[in-house]
């Protein structure tokens, strides 16, 4: 039988989700604008003095990234659930792990990556010292996919519920706290003149664990939600 390969299904799912995001520009713009707005309020609300700002810069950026990714999470499986595409995904003869992973990557590319790209600019606004930039971007590159994939499990679990409200945040935030801690510690450490490699390695380990386990959990959660 000439079945489509798993790789082809993976690419098709990735391409489809990216295409949908490009056509519904809000998916890309909302988390991005939210991130920029939240971060720019800090100098206004706390103090425009760079001595004060540089101490909180890493934490502010990391928290804003977490909140922005929570905001973008809601759209992850909702429209697919409502129009029935999710049923087709579950009934595919291709491994669900790969298809879910493709959706996670597409989601990160449109919601995580733009935020990371603009983060050095906002770090500059918060007077982050020069030695912190590389570590900040690296920690975000390693940490945001972990947050995204943990969030994906929570969204998959709650996609069948009518009104989700805060449930999503209540499930996702506790799981994301270690990422937040190690992300900010890595930046603080390189500001203090130490090496951030240990913390970055921990974030890398979390990413490896998330990539291998989270899509499995998401796939199982989707099967439960659609039952």
């Amino acid at each position: 039988m000439n079945r489509a390969g798993a790789g082809a299904a993976f690419r098709a799912t990735l391409k489809r989700d990216l295409l949908i995001s490009v056509k519904r520009r809000n998916d890309i713009l909302n988390p991005f604008m939210f991130f920029v707005i939240v971060v720019s309020l800090f100098p206004i609300g706390i103090s425009p003095e760079s001595a004060m700002l540089r101490q909180i810069a890493a934490g502010v950026i990391w928290i804003a990234v977490l909140l922005a990714s929570m905001l973008s999470m809601d759209s992850l499986y909702r429209s697919d659930y409502e129009d029935g595409s999710l049923e087709q995904l579950l009934l595919s003869s291709q491994p669900l792990y790969l298809l879910v992973f493709a959706k996670n990557i597409a989601h990160w590319l449109v919601s995580g990556l733009p935020v990371i790209l603009v983060s050095p600019l906002l770090a500059y606004m918060l007077a982050l010292p020069a030695e912190g930039y590389v570590t900040l971007v690296l920690s975000l590159l390693l940490g945001t996919p972990v947050v995204g994939m943990l969030g994906s499990i929570a969204v998959a679990l709650t996609v069948g519920l009518g009104s989700r409200g805060l449930i999503l945040a209540v499930i996702t935030v506790p799981m994301s706290v270690p990422v937040l801690i190690f992300g900010t510690l890595a930046v603080q450490n390189s500001l203090a003149g130490g090496s951030p490699l240990g913390y970055l390695a921990l974030l890398g380990a979390m990413l490896a664990a998330a990539v291998s386990l989270a899509p499995v959990a998401t796939a199982a959660a989707l099967r439960i939600s659609l039952n």
Binding site: R3, R16, L19, D83, G84, S85, E87, L91
Partner: peptide, 16 residues
């Protein structure tokens, strides 16, 4: 691999 299911919800994305 041998099943085609078309449900109530037609699995057609509106923006595509």
């Amino acid at each position: 691999a041998n099943l085609l299911y078309i449900g109530h919800r037609v699995a057609v994305n509106h923006v595509l």
